[in-house]
Design a protein around this nucleic acid. Structure first.
Lengths: 126, 126
DNA sequence: GCGGTCATACGATAGGCGTCGTAGTACGGT
DNA sequence: ACCGTACTACGACGCCTATCGTATGACCGC
């Protein structure tokens, strides 16, 4: 409703996202973030892409709002980093930070997720 | 109220606990079980003991009921196994199953938990 | 048998979380 | 300048969960 779109001196062009510092990342938080199937899928996709991925590039069987929610959880728990690139928001795994804090954990989780999906697929096809 | 303590043919001496089969253990469930600080503590203690531990041998800053609850969550998600030994209930990590399903994961989580606790302790003492 | 101890079950409570829809905001292209 | 697109914010709903206290059941030693 306000006629001006720049209220109270807020920088309109600087859409910045809050990320926890490396030392503030907690194991329980990371595990919690990874414990949701949707988020696990996101993380796997991100790891497979090895680079930046648009939010919409990851197809999920949930609504847009829910998708945003999951991305935020991952970001606030230190699992991913997000930056704005034009209208899109690019996402990337914080591998360096996670590997430094919890060596090998991310790799093992990703491998475990892959193993399990294959196992379940085999069961289904058999 | 019933005068007999063996109602409807239920085996009174066979207090058996339900455990998921190895192939029914899901990664998301395990991560979820591990994502709670209390449960993480329990698992660490169990791993450190390398054997069986009485429920009461693990000191937790929660009530007895809550403790039982956490143990049950761990058991139902396939992280630990529990057997009755007299009045006590012995708990043990299901390392073989977990390592077979998710190689290296448990070790890394335990190592990560240890690393983090040291890191936090250092911060506190400094 | 009796009582003590360990653990459970059950109910209650408060908070968190996953999900959605709608309305709103930022940016890029025409 | 306008519109469409991409994402967000907010409120709502229902479910799950972490916590507790109390009452109950199972076992062991006497």
């Amino acid at each position: 409703m306000p006629t001006d779109t720049t209220p109270t001196g807020a920088p309109s062009g600087a859409r910045s996202l809050e990320h926890p510092a490396r030392e503030d990342i907690r194991l329980a938080d990371v595990l919690h973030a990874l414990a949701d199937p949707m988020r696990l899928r996101i993380v796997c996709a991100l790891a497979a892409a090895e680079g930046e991925l648009n939010c919409a590039d990851i197809e999920l069987p949930v609504s847009k709002s829910t998708c945003t929610h999951h991305f935020r959880v991952l970001r606030e728990h230190g699992v991913i980093q997000q930056i704005y690139r034009g209208t899109a928001k690019m996402n990337g795994l914080r591998r360096a930070d996670l590997d430094a804090l919890f060596p090998g954990l991310v790799d093992d989780v990703l491998r475990a997720a892959d193993l399990q999906s294959r196992r379940l697929a085999d069961e289904g096809d058999a």
